[in-house]
Write a protein that binds this DNA or RNA. Structure first.
Lengths: 167, 167
DNA sequence: CGAATATAGTTATAGTTGTTAACTAGATGA
DNA sequence: TCATCTAGTTAACAACTATAACTATATTCG
C-alpha cells in the first residue's frame, strides 16, 4: 500500500500545517446528506436542552403531538405516522403512561388494539412543550430570517413527504 | 388520571375513525427539528443504498473526503472538523486502515500524533464514492429543482456553521 | 362451524451508535 | 526535574434501531 503523496513509502511525515476547523471548501460542504445531518444535530441539541427539565425526548414529544391531534389513535397508526417500528411505540407509550401523561384504552370493537389518549396532565404539558419547541427552533436558527425558516421547512417537507409516499 | 375527552373514567372507547397516515395538519408539520430529522433519514436511506456494495457508512465517507482534502490531518483535527468524539475516530480509522484505504503515519515532530493519508486505493475509491454520493443526493431529492436544492444546502450550512462557531 | 390466515401488541435480543472515564506515551513549561 | 497538558487509545456503558418470535384476538373461507 503506497502513500499517495509521492508514491514512495514514507515512514515519518509532518502532519499538514493547516489546521482545518470546518468542512469549508470540501466536497462535504456540498453534500446535502451531510448538511442535513449536521443541521439536524444542531437543532436537536437546542431541543434537548429546552426539554431537559421535562425529561422529554424528541420521539416522546412527537408522540404527544400526534396523540393530541388524533385522540384515540391506535399504536399501529401512530407507528405509521411517525414512521417508526411498532416495538419502539410500546416502550414509548409505556413511559408516557407511567408518567401519567397518556393512557391506553382497549378498543371494545377490536380487543387487540388500544386507543391512545392524553390525560389532562398530558394535554397541559403538551401545550407547554409546543411553545418550548417553537422557541427552541427559533433559537437554533438565529442565522435564518423568518422567511428563510419557512422556506427551509417547506423544502424539507417536500423531501420527506415524497419519500414517504413512494414506499 | 382522567381521560381528557369527557373527564369521566371511560374503560372502553372506539379508536378514532380517521386513520392518519402522515403528520399533515399537525404541529409537527411546522417543526423544523422534526422536518430535519425526517428529511435526513430519507436522504441517508438513499445514501446507504448507494454505498451498500462498497460497505461505506456515512461517517466513513465523510472521513475519506476530509482526509482527501487535508492529507496528513491528525485524528484530533479530523474529530474537530467532523464534530465527533475522538474515540469514534479510532475505530473509524482502524477500519479504513484494515481495508487498505487509509493509513496512519506517526509524525516525527510530535510522536503522539498521527497524520492520516489515503492510499492509492483509498483515493480511487473516494473519487468513485463522491460521484455516487452526488447522484444519491439528487435521487433523494427528486421533488426539488436544482435551484431549490442549492437553496436548501445554503440554508442548512447557515444553521450548522453558526452553531459550530458559537461553541 | 372451524381451520387457516392475518393483525395488534408485546417481549426478547442483538447490532449499531454515541458517551464517558480512565489509561499510556509523549510533549511542554516552570 | 516535576507537574501539567495533549494525542490517541481502550473499555464500559447507555441509547437507539431492527429483527424475530410469541400471545391474543379477528377474519376468511371451505
Amino acid at each position: 500500500m503506497a502513500i499517495s503523496k509521492k508514491g514512495t513509502s514514507i515512514q515519518q511525515v509532518e502532519p499538514d500545517e493547516k489546521e482545518p476547523t470546518s468542512v469549508a471548501g470540501l466536497v462535504l460542504e456540498n453534500r446535502l446528506g451531510y448538511a442535513l445531518r449536521r443541521a439536524q444535530l444542531a437543532v436537536f441539541k437546542h431541543f434537548n436542552e429546552a426539554m431537559q427539565e421535562h425529561e422529554i425526548r424528541p420521539a416522546q414529544f412527537s408522540s404527544l403531538v400526534v396523540i393530541e391531534g388524533y385522540p384515540g389513535i391506535t399504536q399501529t397508526n401512530l407507528a405509521k405516522v411517525l414512521d417508526i417500528d411498532p416495538p419502539r411505540i410500546v416502550s414509548l407509550i409505556n413511559n408516557l403512561e407511567e408518567r401519567g401523561l397518556a393512557l391506553r384504552v382497549r378498543c371494545k370493537r377490536d380487543k387487540r388494539s388500544h386507543g391512545i389518549f392524553l390525560s389532562k396532565k398530558g394535554e397541559a404539558l403538551t401545550e407547554q412543550l409546543k411553545e418550548l419547541a417553537e422557541q427552541s427552533d427559533i433559537n437554533a436558527t438565529q442565522a435564518l430570517s423568518e422567511i428563510e425558516r419557512r422556506q427551509l421547512l417547506s423544502l424539507l417537507v417536500k423531501i420527506y413527504a415524497a419519500d414517504t409516499i413512494e414506499e
